[in-house]
């Protein structure tokens, strides 16, 4: 046996295992979804608890995705696969996802004022938006709004809520705390969204993420701008 330089191998090994965990999560998601549909008719109380479990499952997946993104970005594997999609469908999907995961206290609205098709990587865009949505689902007081519109030659996809909004530290944009224990935020979610947005290029423009507080609902506003 010889000594191996561990860093690269370890990273690839971890990435491989994360993929496997994601596959298993895939089965778990479907099983939970099915259980939750069944519970709705047979045992509504259980259905509510299952909804909370499903959201937790989604958040586990979000985290895995973020770790993978760091790995991919570092090894230069991160690229967008553009094709034409209908942004209204993306919003529809998000609204469905939000409704299926929302507690009784939340109302979800969706609106699309965008062109009928836009070029983007559906997987990256949906992953970034669902991550933002999962956050809103935890922090919103009563309302979440999802929207698509065109502005300045960009497609703007936004997730807004009426919660307390982003912490000032995050908005200032400076160095994000790698770990702030209490809320469990690692800043990797935003890193993922920014990497995903920036991978969208059109001629001399690149995509970006805007986070702010206020908007139509007065809480957090997460927007993905895609050229």
């Amino acid at each position: 046996m010889t000594d191996q330089p561990p860093s690269v191998e370890l990273a690839a090994l971890l990435a491989g295992n994360i993929h496997e965990v994601k596959n298993l999560l895939g089965q778990l998601f479907l099983a939970l979804d099915e259980a939750s549909v069944t519970a709705q008719t047979e045992c509504p109380k259980l259905a509510q608890r299952l909804t909370a479990m499903r959201l937790t499952g989604r958040r586990v997946h979000d985290r895995l995705l973020h770790i993978l993104t760091v790995y991919k970005a570092e090894s230069g594997f991160f690229a967008a696969n553009l094709d034409a999609y209908d942004p209204a469908e993306t919003i529809e999907d998000l609204v469905q996802e939000a409704r299926s995961l929302a507690g009784m206290h939340l109302s979800i609205a969706g609106q699309s004022l965008s062109p009928a098709s836009w070029y983007f990587d559906r997987y990256l865009v949906e992953s970034a938006l669902t991550n933002a949505l999962h956050n809103s689902l935890r922090y919103a007081a009563t309302r979440i709004s999802l929207s698509a519109r065109a502005e300045d030659g960009y497609l703007v996809l936004s997730v807004e809520d009426d919660g307390p909004g982003f912490p000032a530290q995050m908005l200032e944009g400076g160095v994000l705390p790698l770990h702030n224990g209490e809320k469990g935020s690692t800043g990797l979610g935003l890193f993922f969204s920014r990497t995903a947005a920036a991978a969208h290029k059109n001629r001399d423009k690149a995509g970006f993420v805007k986070i702010e507080n206020g908007g139509t609902l007065g809480g957090a506003v997460f927007s993905l701008w895609l050229p």
């Binding site: 999560l25 979804d33 999907d93 469905q96």
Partner: peptide, 16 residues
């Protein structure tokens, strides 16, 4: 569809 996906996602994709 990319794993993991939800039942709702599967339904929506098939329907479209």
């Amino acid at each position: 569809l990319i794993k993991p996906f939800s039942g709702e996602q599967l339904r929506a994709r098939l329907e479209r």
